[in-house]
Design a protein around this nucleic acid. Sequence first.
DNA 1: GCGTTCAGCTAATACGTATTAGAGAGGGGG
DNA 2: CCCCCTCTCTAATACGTATTAGCTGAACGC
Lengths: 362, 362
Amino acid sequence: MAHSPRRRRPTQVDIARHAGVSQATVSLVISGGAASDQIPEPTRLAVLAAARQLGYSANVAARSLKGGRNRLLGLYTFEPVFPTDQRDFYYPFLLGVEEETAAQGYDLLLFSSVTSAGDRSIYAGGANRLKIADGCVLLGRSVRRAELAALIREDFPFVFIGRREVDDGELSYVAADYVTATADLVAALVRLGHRRILHLRAPGDSEPTRDRESGYRRGIAEAGLPADHVLIETLTDPADLSADHLRAWADRHGATALLVEPTEDTRLVEALEDAARSGGLRFPDDLSLALLGDPPSWTPELRDWTRYSLPRARMAREAVGLLIELLDDPASAPRQLSVPCAFVAGDTIGPPVTPPVPGERS
Amino acid sequence: MAHSPRRRRPTQVDIARHAGVSQATVSLVISGGAASDQIPEPTRLAVLAAARQLGYSANVAARSLKGGRNRLLGLYTFEPVFPTDQRDFYYPFLLGVEEETAAQGYDLLLFSSVTSAGDRSIYAGGANRLKIADGCVLLGRSVRRAELAALIREDFPFVFIGRREVDDGELSYVAADYVTATADLVAALVRLGHRRILHLRAPGDSEPTRDRESGYRRGIAEAGLPADHVLIETLTDPADLSADHLRAWADRHGATALLVEPTEDTRLVEALEDAARSGGLRFPDDLSLALLGDPPSWTPELRDWTRYSLPRARMAREAVGLLIELLDDPASAPRQLSVPCAFVAGDTIGPPVTPPVPGERS
DNA sequence: GCGTTCAGCTAATACGTATTAGAGAGGGGG
DNA sequence: CCCCCTCTCTAATACGTATTAGCTGAACGC
C-alpha cells in the first residue's frame, strides 16, 4: 500500500473552513469553557463534528505560547531515575506523582532527555525546557542551585519533593520531617538505656543530611545528654560498613547504638546485610542499629530494620496537589508542607549490651 | 517576603532593545548555529552580554511552534498501569521506553489523565490528545480497535508494543514471537515424552492469545501428533486454578503437561503457587507445567517456573527506535518487528508421570 | 420609523521565535 | 562613473491559539 506523505496537522483554521465559521468561533467552542455557553448548540455541534472528522487536536506549543494551559504537569529529576539501582528509591515518588496527576485530570511529562552535550540540565540550549508544562514537580538529591534560583527568578511554578533552600528566595516544597523523626529515634534509643549513640551521616550538606543531623542533635539535647555525647561520623563510602569497621567505630566512641543515614542506592544496606551475615555482627545483640530512612528497595527486605519510613507516595501526591493550587492561584506565595515519617519498630534495636563507660551520667 | 506579581520573562525583543540591534539579529546570535558565523564578533558579544545580563532564556513554546516538533514522545496505555497490581507487568516496558526516549534526546509524555467523562479515551473532547506528542508508543491488552483505526486514518505516527491488527490498514508494531516460543515449548515437552498437553488459554481473542494458540497448534502438528491431541481449555477465572481443579482438568483430558497463558496481574501465578503449597500439587512430580510468558512480578519468584520470557525492555526500546525512524521519514510505510522470546528452563517440567493412555501412538 | 438591545458571530491582534528576502553601506574593478 | 559584490544587519512574515472589541441582522418597544 502506498503511504500518503504525512498530512499537515489540521488546525483551527481548517476546522473553521470545514464548518463554515471563523477560527475564533472554533477556538471558543473547543477551549472556551465559559464563552462556549454563548455559542448556540447547532454551531457547537457542527464545529465539534468537523473537529472530530479532521482529527483535530490542539497544538500545545501554540496554546502555551499564548499563555494558556496545556493540562500538562512536568516531572523533572536531577538524577537519572530509571535505569539505575536508584529506581527503587524513586519509583514510589513517580507512582504518587503519576497517580495524583491523573486524578487531577492532567497528563504527566517526564523530562528525561539528556541534551546533546550530555548535560542533564533544565536550561538546555539556552531555553528552559520545563516551560512546555504548566508547572513542574522537581525531585532529586544533587540539585543545581543555580538552576533552582533561575526558576524562581522566572516565576515558573514548581514544587520540590524534599526540603530545599536557595539564597535567592523562597520556593515551594513538600518535605518529610526528618528532624522530628530522627529526634524521636534518638529518644527511643535513650529510653532503651543507650547513652552514647553514634550518628553516621552522609557526606555533603544537602538539606536531608542537615535535617537528620539537626534531629540527632536535638534528640541528644532533649534527652539531657551532655554535648560530648554528640557523636558524628561521616560515611564517605558504603564499603566502610564492614563488620570490623563498624565495631571499630563503636569502640572508639564507646557507642552502643548507631543511627545510619541510608543512601538512595542499594549499596549501603547491602553492606549492612553483609556485615551481619558474613561479618558475624548481630543486631541488636552486639549493637543497636536504626536507619534514618527507608532501605532503598521496596521489595521485602531480608532484615526488618528499625527505622522511619518516608511516606513517599503521599509526599508525591501532596506535591502535585500543591502545584495545582499554585497554578490555580498564580499570585500565591511559595508554600511549604511537612509530612511526618512513620516509625517502623523493626528488630534491630534493643537494650545496650556494652556496659556504659564508667563515670558517665546515668 | 512579598511576592512580586509574576514578572514577564525577557524576550529577544528586550535583548534587541538593550543591545541596540534587531530581534532577528538576536535570534541569529542565540540559536542560529550556522548563520551565527556571519555575525561579526563585536555584535555577537554585545548580544550575548545583554542576554546574560537580562537573564534570558528561550521560550520553548514559541520555538517549537515555529518548528513544528516538540521533541516529545507519548506513551499511551489502554489500561491504567500504575496503581494496580498490573504495574509489575508493565513497568519493564515503561522502563525501556523511558530509557530509549531519553537516549534519543526526547522527553516522554505519559497519557494518564482520565477525561472528565471518566473515559480513558484517546479521543477526548473531540480531539486526539496524543497529538501533543510528535509520536506515540501504545501499549495494553484491551485495545479499542476503532481508536486505532482512527489513528491510522489520521496518519498519526505511532508504534504498538505487541502485535495488533486492524481491518482498516497496517500499523507499526514490535511484537514478541509468541508463536515460535510456544511451539518450542511444546516441542520441549514432547521431547520429554509428553503426548497429551493441555493448553489453558485466556478468554477473549486478542492477538497475544491467538498467537499462543497458533503456536500450540503448530507445536502439536510439528510433533506429528494427531488432531485429537489438541487439548484447549479457556481459563475464565484465575480462581479456577485450584489444585483439585487442575487435577480434574488433567484427568479429563488425560494430560500430563499444562501450558498456561499467564494474566497480567498477579492472581494467576498466586493461584498456582497456592495450588502447589496448600493443594499438595507438585510440579513436575505430579504434573508438568510451563507458563506461556512471564509471571507478572519482576521480583524474585517463589518458584522458578519453566516458561519463556518476553524481552520487555528490549521490545520497548525497539518500539521507540522504530517510532523515531517513522518520525524522521514521514513517508515510510508501517513496519513490523518481531523479537524472539527467551526460554527459561525452570524446574516445573519433567518426564510424564501418568502413563500414556493405552492405544495412543508412541 | 427610529432607537435599543441582544444573540451570534468575526476581524484583528498578541504571544516569541526562526527564517528569508533584501536593504544599505562600503569597496574594488572596469 | 557605473556595476557588482560582500558584509552586516533588518523588516516582514509565519507558526496556531486565545481573547477582545466590535460588526450584523433581527426582534422589540414606543
